[in-house]
Amino acid sequence: MNRVSVEHLTVLGGSQEVVRDVTVTFRPGRWTAIVGPNGAGKTSLVESMVALRRVASGSVSVAGKDVHSLRERERARLVAFIPQNPVVPVGMSVVDYVGLGRTAHHGILQAMAMADTRAVEEVMKRLNLTNLAQRDVATLSGGECQRAVIARALAQATQILVLDEPTTGLDVRHQFEIMQLLRREVDECEVTVISTLHDLSLAGQYADEMVVIHDARVVLHGPTSEVLRSPVLGDCYDMDLRVVEVDGRDVVVPIQRV
C-alpha cells in the first residue's frame, strides 16, 4: 500500500532537464530524506511524484499505480503533499483548514461526514492543536502554522507523505518539534515519509535513508549514516563534511574547502 517507486523519470523545466533519468525506490514505512545543493532538482522530483509536474518520460508509481494517470481524488487518498511555502488562507479557522485534508474523502459537493469530523478531531488532538481550533490560521506563529499544515496532510489519512522542506523558516526548537512529529508518524503509523531537507544534521538524526541529488541525477542512495560518511556527498556541495557523533547521533559539520 505504501510503496513509491520512480522509474527513469525525466522532468523538463523550460528546455532544461531538471530531473534526469532518475530511478529510485523508497522504502515503505520508512523516512527517506532527499538532499542535495540548491537547484539540484529536489523540488521538481517531489512535485512530479504527486503529479503536480508533467513528466517528459519515465513514471512514478504509488501503491502499484501510475500517479500521472490517477484522478486527483484517487491520488489524494494515496499520497499527501506539502509544498515548501504553503498558501495560508486569510480568515479560515484552524479546524476548517485541517478539514480541507478530507476533501478527497467526502467529495466536492458533500458536507463532511461524521467520519471526517472524527478524523479531523483525532489529528488535531495528536498534534496538540485542539486549543487553537477556532483561531484564524493566518494569525498562527510559524511553528503552529506548520503543525496545522501537517495536520491537514495527516487528515488525508494517506500511507505516504511527501514534504518539500518542512522546516523552512522555523527556529531550532520548532524544527525539532516538526521532525519529532513526523518521526512518530513513521514509527507508530508506518507512514512512508519522503521529504527534501537542506539541513544534513536534521536529516542525519531523523531520516532512515538518504537520496542525494546532484545535477538532476541521483548520485547516492542508502542508509543515512552511510550516506553522510561518503565523500561523494561533500563533492556535491564542494565542501568537506565532517560527521561528529554526539550522544549517539550524527551531526554534520561543514568545512570550506581550500
Binding site: E72, A76, V87, L100, T103, I108
Partner: peptide
C-alpha cells in the same frame, strides 16, 4: 453548490490539486 470547492481553492491551485480537487 461549489462553495466547498472554492474554500479548497483558497489554498491555491497546487495545494488544492494535492488535496484531491480536480
Amino acid at each position: 453548490a461549489s462553495a466547498r470547492a472554492l474554500d479548497v481553492l483558497s489554498v491555491g491551485d497546487v495545494e488544492a490539486r494535492a488535496l484531491g480537487l480536480p
